[in-house]
């Protein structure tokens, strides 16, 4: 078994991705979480081998035999102190690694040169302060995205483009998400683009991603939000920046057209006395 686990660990990055390591590859924060996870995994594997190896060995070696007498040992202070210290040292090591890696996980980097599309001052902020802001609003049982800075202040009157369930995002740009909920607690999670952030009504939470390449990323609400929680999926469609800009314009146009049609209908209904 020991060799099987060792082989599994060696193959971890390739064949066993998503079996013993978290999803990654979409965004630097997800990748850094993944590498932190792997460091802990290697340490854990060694500890596990030692503990279970000793356990299994003693199970066979010290089985009651004729004439065997159990050694009447009550303890060994030096041994006990040393494994207490050893356990503590391992944890100190993991702590140090965690804090070394933490900066890259919580602080967004700058966008790639030339792909900055809009700027805002909402936290978290990349060093040059330029970012794409998308507001994520959880509600039973769908995610709503509003695009552009200032989206937090007013969802409707700013006439910002919005979409449901599927988010469009530009590749190479640092995207900051402002996350809110209108009803119960939801949790924003697209595994390849980083960790979870709860959407708690009454609070605004933040996360970010910087998609390394175009692609479609699957995610799902991760906090029980009611009977149809399983249906509250999310898709992030990462496209080249020019395409993103074109999509925004198109979405803006479609929304305006739809609003105009609704306005005209409302006017007609009001004038004809039906409303």
């Amino acid at each position: 078994m020991a060799s099987a686990v060792a082989v599994a660990l060696l193959l971890a990055p390739a064949a066993f991705a998503n079996f013993i390591t978290p999803k990654a590859g979409g965004s630097p924060n997800a990748n850094k979480i993944d590498s932190l996870y792997k460091i802990i995994l290697y340490i854990a594997a060694v500890v596990f081998m030692i503990v279970v190896g000793t356990l299994v060995y003693s199970m066979f070696k010290f089985r009651a035999k004729k004439g065997a007498v159990a050694a009447q040992i009550h303890g060994n202070t030096r041994l006990e102190v040393s494994w207490t210290v050893a356990a503590a040292l391992i944890l100190v090591a993991i702590t140090v690694v965690t804090f070394v890696k933490l900066g890259g996980i919580i602080n967004p980097p700058n966008s790639n040169p030339g792909v900055v599309l809009s700027a805002s001052t909402t936290q978290p902020t990349p060093p040059n302060g330029k970012q794409v802001t998308i507001c994520v609003q959880g509600r039973q049982y769908i995610w709503r995205y509003t695009y552009g800075s200032g989206c937090l202040n007013n969802y409707f009157t700013n006439k910002l483009p919005y979409s449901y369930q599927e988010m469009e995002a530009p590749a190479g740009a640092t995207v900051v998400l402002d996350i809110q909920s209108t009803d119960v607690i939801h949790s924003w999670w697209v595994p390849s683009l980083g960790g979870k952030v709860d959407a708690v009504p009454g609070y605004t939470t933040y996360t970010w991603f910087k998609a390394l390449h175009p692609g479609l990323f699957h995610g799902q609400c991760a906090q029980l939000c009611g009977r149809n929680h399983a249906a509250m999926t999310a898709l992030v469609n990462v496209v080249p920046p020019a395409q993103y800009q074109a999509w925004l314009n198109q979405q803006q146009r479609l929304i305006t057209q739809a609003n105009d049609r609704v306005g005209a209908l409302r006017q007609y209904l009001t004038q004809s006395g039906q409303l």
Partner: peptide
């Protein structure tokens, strides 16, 4: 231990 490491927990929790 994985779950206690909070950046890793962001991927693993729930």
């Amino acid at each position: 231990i994985f779950l206690a490491t909070f950046p890793v927990d962001w991927q693993l929790t729930d």
